[in-house]
Structure formats: structure tokens, C-alpha cells
Amino acid sequence: MIRFENVSKQYKNSQRPALTDINLDIEQGEFVFLVGSSGSGKSSLLRLLLKEETATSGNVSIDGLDVGKLSNRKVPALRRTLGIVFQDFRLLPSKSVFDNVAFGMEVIGKNRKEIRERVPEVIELVGLEGKEDRLPSELSGGEQQRVALARAFINQPKILLADEPTGNLDPSTSVGIMKLLDRINRTGTTILMATHDVAIVDQMRKRIVQLEHGTIVRDQQRGMYGHTGH
């Protein structure tokens, strides 16, 4: 489903490459943790999938679609098949929970009827029923991340990319978010999540891909953060 073949990324204004010769295959429905110390290239790898950046060499493909060769005009169509969650939630501060979630449908032209049906479903899925009319500033960090997850999931993407979604949350709130991600994963959505959170990685026992200095140093099924498994 997701495939990196000999991918390298060199930013223009940086001396050393952010990613070097990455080879990675992720199947449909997998849950993969992307770990590694700060600056190891996790976000860069996710940005290549979103085509926010383009690989310097090698191939990045999703479902056989060569992301690197995608014309600018076709990038929106690619992103509609992807859900994205960030550490800082990226909610619209002036819009209610309902409108923030609905935004994901509005920008791709869904009609009012579809929105009225679908949004409450997803708000319930993330456990925010009754808080539809609140503004993001009236929510806890964990709740805000649930809104962001609802928005990312609203169009039922095949792949959900999460860049340190629990980075700003305390451990117990993080567990709630992870449970939610697990539920979304069980609907068949492929999840690729970059994280530093040792406890979470160890608890979930999912596939771990570890980057250091832009290269993959470990790729392990049902792994633990600190253990290499040897």
C-alpha cells in the first residue's frame, strides 16, 4: 500500500540529508510506529507521503501511485485519500467542534445532508457527543486531538498519518487517543504514526520502524521501543 524505494531527501538549505536510501513497505490495515530521536527524519518521511516535499531520489508510492511524479493539480486528490493528525491539533479557533469536523467535508464539496448525517457519527466515535457547539479553546488538549482525529477520519481515508499526536498530551489522555487510533485501525485504515512516546509504543505492541540520522535502523513486528528484539 505504502512503498518507499531507495528514497533519499536532501533539503536545499541543509548540509546532511534528512533521509538516506529508505526502503519500506507497509500493507493495507497495518499499524506502524515510526520512532527515532529528534531530527532522525520522521516528519520528513510523512511529508513525502503528503507531497508537501518531494524526494530527491527514489520512489514513493501509495497504492501503486507514484507520489513524487504527481502533478500539483492532482495533489488534492491524493490528500483526500489520506487523513492527517499533528501534535498541535491544527483546529480552526473560531469554529465550533461540529464545524471543525464538518470542515473536512465542506472543503471537498460534500452537501449539507451528507454533513449532517456523517459528522455526528464521527463525533460520537471519538467520544465528544454533547460538545459539538464548543470552541477549541473550551476543550482540553486530549479533546482537541479527538476533534482533529474526527476531522482526519471524516472522509474515511484509507491511510491515516499521525505526527506525534500524543506529543502534547499527558499519559492517561494519550492512552485514550491511542485507543481511538486502534479503533480506527480496526476499520481497515492503515495507520503510520511518528512518536517519541516509549510507554505507548511498548503497550501497543505494533510494528516499529526506527530511524536514526535518516536511515532505518530497525523494522520489527510487535516491537518494544527500547528492545531491538535480538
Binding site: L78, L82, R90, F103, I108
Partner: peptide, 14 residues
């Protein structure tokens, strides 16, 4: 810019 970057990331066309 926040709105537009979110729009872009959820796949709104240019």
C-alpha cells in the same frame, strides 16, 4: 494561513 493550510491538508483543490 491556518485555515488555508488545513484546507490544503484535507485535500481542498487550489
Amino acid at each position: 494561513r491556518r485555515e488555508t493550510s488545513i484546507m490544503r491538508s484535507v485535500g481542498a483543490s487550489n
